[in-house]
Simulated assay, not measured.
Amino acid sequence: MSETARRAGVSPQYLSEMERGLKEPSSEMIAAVAGALDVTLIDLTLAVADSLRSAQSDVSRGATCSAAYALAA
């Protein structure tokens, strides 16, 4: 992580906080991190969108299972 932070021009702590959602980076900072990771902004955006879709799908399935158990009781 420290190599990625160095290449992006941020501290490892700041990068870690970005990863954990504790910082809201500017678009320039996101572009710098994407460049440091050797990915394009579009690839990064698509990966985030896929991750969010997957998480939403998991939540939806969990809600359906909970509702089914509540109905069975």
Rank of each mutant, 00 (worst) to 15 (best):
M1A: 09
S2M: 08
S2A: 14
E3W: 01
T4C: 10
T4D: 01
A5E: 03
R6S: 04
R6F: 05
R6A: 08
G9K: 03
G9T: 02
G9R: 02
V10Y: 05
V10N: 02
S11G: 14
S11R: 10
P12W: 03
P12G: 01
Q13H: 12
Y14K: 07
Y14H: 15
S16G: 15
E17T: 13
M18S: 06
M18Q: 07
E19Y: 09
G21I: 03
G21Y: 01
L22D: 06
L22K: 13
L22V: 14
L22H: 12
K23D: 10
E24I: 10
P25T: 15
S26G: 14
S26I: 05
S26N: 07
S26T: 15
M29E: 09
M29T: 15
M29Y: 03
A31R: 02
A31M: 03
A32P: 02
V33I: 08
V33F: 01
V33Y: 00
A34G: 04
A34M: 05
A34W: 01
G35T: 02
G35K: 13
A36P: 11
A36E: 10
D38V: 02
D38I: 04
V39T: 09
V39S: 01
V39F: 03
T40Q: 06
T40A: 09
T40D: 13
L41S: 10
L41E: 13
L41V: 14
L41Y: 04
I42W: 00
I42A: 03
D43K: 11
D43M: 13
D43S: 12
L44H: 05
L44C: 04
A47M: 07
V48E: 00
A49L: 06
D50R: 09
S51E: 11
L52R: 08
L52H: 05
R53E: 09
R53K: 07
S54M: 05
S54R: 12
Q56N: 05
S57R: 05
D58V: 11
D58L: 08
V59A: 12
V59N: 09
S60G: 06
S60Y: 08
G62P: 02
A63P: 00
A63V: 11
A63K: 12
A63N: 08
T64A: 12
T64K: 06
T64F: 09
T64R: 06
C65W: 08
C65P: 00
S66Y: 14
A67W: 11
A67L: 14
A68F: 05
A68T: 12
Y69E: 13
A70E: 12
L71R: 11
L71N: 08
A72K: 11
A73W: 05
A73Q: 07
A73R: 07
